[in-house]
Computed example of a mutant assay.
Amino acid sequence: MTRPATGGGGQRLLVRYPRAGRREALHRHQMLRVRGRSIAWVPPLLLLLGISVVDAVTPGDFRIISWIVLVPGIAAALCGAWGTAVFGVLSLLAYAIVDSAWPDEFRAGLPDFILVALGGLLATAACVVRIRGEEHLLRMRGIAETIRRTVLRPLPAEWGGLSHAGVYLAADTDARVGGDFYDIQPGPHGTRVLVGDVQGKGLGAVEAAAALLGTFREAGYHEPDLATVAERMAVRIRRHQDHVAALGRSDNDRFATALLLGFPQDAADTVDVVNFGHDPPLIAGPRGVRTLPTTGGLPLGLGDLVPPGVPTLPPVRRFPFAADETLLITTDGVTEARAPDGAFYPLTVEVTRALTADPRTAHPGRLVALVRDGVLRHSRGHLADDTTVMALRRL
């Protein structure tokens, strides 16, 4: 996400809980490197030498040379296809040399030789399958990364008169992007911010998020009234539902919770908020932590549930927002993160405690890192839903 919150503690958490992070998966053989050079060949070579030496120095009634069939199997997990094939051949040669050095009554003979040869062939085939699977996974991750950068575009650290920081953790780390969405759109009528969460998972959720973001980027720039931007988004999600239904798909009832924010140019100490059924944002600063009372609006896509004659759009509400305060927005991946005992993450309590101990925690980068690390610790890295944390402050 925009300007990912970093820090030593946070990086250690992402390493400790890799399911919750977005680290690139490395090839297993790439993990065995010293000064940039691969040493993946060392473990199978040591195993080959060790089995050969032990078999040569032990009594004749303790023959373990047949264990050498393990060497190509270890190589298949760590090395490339050619390396695995080489270890298969070396295993056969070592078997033949060591076994022929014993008297006839102690030799393992042809059956174990065939076993070692067959093990080398199967290990090489397994290695080829493994490498193809890794290449396919990398291609899929490349596609997912392209989708992520298209839907969740990178944003400058200071953009539209706002200093901001954020982090996005996908529950499905292979997909890299899910139903959470966000963007900042500066324009002639002030800066607009959108943070939301599409119901459900998978490509259908990504499609709905992309549709809403496209509308927000255009309407947020051109429309002078924030209520009109909200209306355009409500119309867009209905059009998307109709399109999905016309395709015969069963996920045409997707909806999205969202927070639409406006930072007007003529009122520098305020923020306008339209809440489509989203968790209300927090404001943290020298005067403490407060929750903006913005609940009550229906999510985008559920306007048909409103009786005729009743307004379907939530109102635009204006709140004071000082220059020394930070606006914190999270998706339900934060508020619904559970500990092993089932307890939810106490967002407001944790932010209040941190600001009481150190008022500098209200800085956007520190605040996002605090919430990210707190959620990972609280849930032990097992995120049940996509998690987005975003903090904004006026420059």
Rank of each mutant, 00 (worst) to 15 (best):
L118N: 10
L93W: 06
W102F: 15
L118E: 05
F113G: 13
L110V: 11
L93S: 07
S91K: 10
V89D: 03
D99L: 10
T84D: 05
G109T: 06
A85Q: 02
L110I: 05
R107E: 01
G80Y: 01
V98M: 03
G119I: 03
C79V: 03
G88C: 05
G83S: 05
L118M: 08
A96R: 07
I97Y: 10
E105S: 14
D112L: 07
G80D: 15
G88L: 06
V116S: 06
R107V: 06
A117F: 13
L110A: 06
E105D: 15
F113P: 02
C79W: 03
L93F: 14
L90E: 08
A117Y: 00
L92F: 06
I114D: 01
S91E: 12
V89R: 07
V116G: 00
W82E: 07
L90M: 15
R107L: 05
L90Q: 09
D104G: 11
A75T: 11
I97M: 14
L92R: 00
V98G: 01
W102S: 09
P103G: 15
L78K: 02
G73C: 09
D112P: 00
A101Y: 09
A77Y: 05
T84W: 10
G83N: 05
A76T: 02
L78E: 03
A96W: 07
V86W: 03
G83M: 12
A81G: 03
C79H: 04
L118P: 00
V89N: 10
F106E: 14
G73M: 12
G119W: 11
S91R: 08
F113E: 02
W82T: 14
L118R: 07
A77R: 13
L78N: 09
A96Q: 12
G80Q: 05
L90F: 13
L92D: 06
A94I: 02
A117R: 01
W82M: 11
G109H: 10
W102T: 00
W102D: 04
L90A: 15
S100K: 06
L90P: 10
L78I: 10
A101H: 08
A76V: 02
L118G: 07
F106Y: 13
W82Q: 14
A96D: 11
L115E: 09
I114W: 07
T84I: 12
V116M: 12
V98Y: 04
L115Y: 04
L110R: 05
V86H: 00
V86P: 00
W102A: 15
W102Q: 08
D104K: 01
P111Y: 03
A101T: 13
A81I: 12
A101V: 06
A108V: 13
A75I: 07
Y95V: 10
A108C: 13
S100N: 09
F87A: 07
G88R: 08
A76E: 02
G83T: 01
G88Y: 03
F113N: 00
R107P: 05
R107A: 03
I97T: 14
R107F: 01
L92T: 13
A77S: 13
L78M: 08
L90H: 07
V89T: 10
A85G: 12
D112N: 11
L92H: 03
Y95I: 08
G80I: 02
